[in-house]
């Protein structure tokens, strides 16, 4: 059985090149990691990603169990299937990490992100921004005669879409929380 399904001499590339039997397509995965909320735990998680050259697209963290001092870290990362498997294994063996779940492959899940957008302008542009906010169910959380701050919650794709539509109307400031996610069902 040929694990690599490769003819000898099929590649002249570096010895470190991993011909990935699981496929070479780049995938995006959402990982949810329960960690001890101790000093430096986030630095450990981030250090793992930077030290081993993995990507972080988004990362959110907060204590979710005050009595057990546990935090939930939600990481959106990209890589080939083999790299994603490595990331999970590397996370799972860290001492303060209690569990690692890959929401992308472990059944349906819900993902939400919150963003705040400051749009400045007057006249027609201001009205159009308000109309778009209505369509996207964004809330106005601050206003002056020349600006709005919108709050929008949704999938990262929905937020991307809203940002792109509002950008020409005077988007001057933007803050995003990164993704929080949970598996569906019980």
């Amino acid at each position: 059985m040929n694990a690599l399904s490769l003819k000898k001499g099929a590649s002249k590339k570096s010895a470190y090149d991993l011909k990935n039997p699981l496929g070479d397509t780049i995938e995006t995965h959402t990982l949810t990691v329960i960690v001890d909320n101790e000093a430096g735990v986030l630095a450990r998680v981030i250090g793992l990603f930077s030290g081993r050259g993995y990507n972080i697209d988004s990362l959110t963290v907060a204590e979710t169990d005050h009595e057990g001092h546990l935090s939930r870290v939600t990481i959106v990362t990209t890589g080939t299937p083999a790299v994603i498997e490595q990331i999970k294994a590397q996370l799972d063996r860290m001492v303060p990490i209690h569990s690692v779940h890959d929401l992308t492959v472990e059944g349906p899940s819900v993902e939400r992100e919150l963003a705040m957008l400051k749009v400045t302008g007057t006249g027609e542009k201001r009205v159009e921004a308000m109309r778009l906010a209505d369509i996207f169910r964004a809330n106005v959380v601050d206003t002056t005669l020349e600006s709005f701050v919108f709050e929008i919650t949704g999938t990262p794709e929905k937020i991307d879409a809203f940002i792109e539509l509002v950008r020409p109307l005077g988007l001057t400031d933007l803050a995003r929380t990164g993704v929080a996610a949970l598996a569906r069902g019980v």
Binding site: M1, N2, A3, L4, L6, K8, G9, A10, S11, K13, A15, Y16, D17, L18, K19, N20, P21, L22, A82, E85, Q86, A89, Q90, D92, R93
Partner: peptide, 27 residues
């Protein structure tokens, strides 16, 4: 790695799951 033991059925025993399939895919 792409010419490593091309025709073998590979078994990997390791206490560290992150060592598995890190460099060579095993059966």
């Amino acid at each position: 790695t792409d010419a490593f033991s091309p025709n073998s059925f590979k078994i990997h025993i390791d206490i560290d799951p992150s060592s598995i399939n890190k460099i060579i895919h095993v059966d």
